[in-house]
Design a protein around this nucleic acid. Structure first.
Length: 264
DNA sequence: TGTGATGTTGAATG
DNA sequence: GCATTCAACATCAC
């Protein structure tokens, strides 16, 4: 479930399974819509005999660097997932393609909803520029975060979700940040004081760090977080008030009407 | 059976 | 240029 911490965990898996091994073959399955700037067949051809030498995560994107200087870019959409498995094992149900390594190990890319995107990039910096992909949410400085907010007129949630402001925040973490800082997600940026903006930045950093420390395993997220109460009939872990559900920035949003102040 | 789900993109609107 | 809303992508779970 891929927001920044989830993709970070996928990167660890990818590095462990795929780095520095010769790619014997790419096994293609039903790949419609998955490959964005190359056909599956051409992708498989390019991969054969190559090795991944490193990987780089920026927001929800994972760039896997090849020994020919190019990159394979993974974006997981809502349901993209890597699965490592051995020769003879059954492949995941919605596997779109798999890398096969000489020892028989596979790294499958599974995606039921086909919302994932895979690109083959000769120049990853060019891609980042074209997409206007913002700095990673964990890398961005407080000053740059505040600077991005300058002049914006929309909601705080919309700001956090826009990947050109900063990269990596998704719907669930954005709700968590707003809740922890006690700001209504539909609050308008111009109405937020400097102090609140800084709290949002530091709250976000702390949440992402803790999520990564827990390997994005939701069962281990603190019960004091909004996270595991964020559902129908859920109550605020701070004051017990029933949570509200609304649409903000086009996404389903949970918040506590009692302790999250609406500004603007 | 209908509805909504962690995301992105493009089109249309204001 | 900005911000918002909608539809599309395809499948699963409740």
């Amino acid at each position: 479930m891929p927001e920044l911490p989830e993709v970070n965990t996928k990167k660890l898996n990818f590095d462990r399974v795929a780095l520095h091994k010769k790619i014997e073959k790419v096994e293609l399955r039903e790949t419609n819509h998955i490959f964005r700037n190359i056909t599956g067949e051409a992708f498989a051809k390019k991969m054969k005999g190559r090795k991944f030498t490193s990987s780089y995560r920026r927001g929800k994107y994972l760039f896997a660097h090849l020994d020919n200087g190019h990159d394979v870019l993974f974006h997981f959409g809502m349901t993209g997932e890597f699965y490592a498995y051995e020769e003879g094992d059954q492949h995941p149900k919605h596997e779109r393609f798999a890398f096969r390594f000489p020892d028989g190990q596979r790294l499958g890319f599974d995606c039921p909803r086909k919302l994932a995107h895979i690109y083959y990039l000769e120049n990853k910096d060019e891609f980042i520029q074209e997409k206007k992909l913002g700095e990673d949410a964990l890398e961005i400085s407080e000053a740059a975060f505040l600077q991005k907010m300058e002049g914006k007129t929309g909601t705080i949630k919309g700001f956090l979700l826009n990947q050109s402001n900063l990269a990596g925040m998704g719907n669930l973490y954005a709700d968590e940040v707003c809740w922890q800082v006690r700001i209504h997600p539909a609050s308008l940026i111009p109405a937020l004081e400097d102090k609140t903006r800084r709290e949002l930045y530091h709250g976000m950093q702390a949440i992402l760090r803790q999520a990564i420390a827990n390997k994005a395993d939701y069962a281990h997220y603190p019960d004091e977080w909004l996270w595991n109460h964020r559902n129908k009939g859920g109550t605020c872990p701070r004051d017990g008030h029933e949570l509200e559900r609304d649409k903000v920035a086009g996404r389903s949003t949970y918040y506590c009407p009692q302790c999250q102040e609406l500004r603007g």
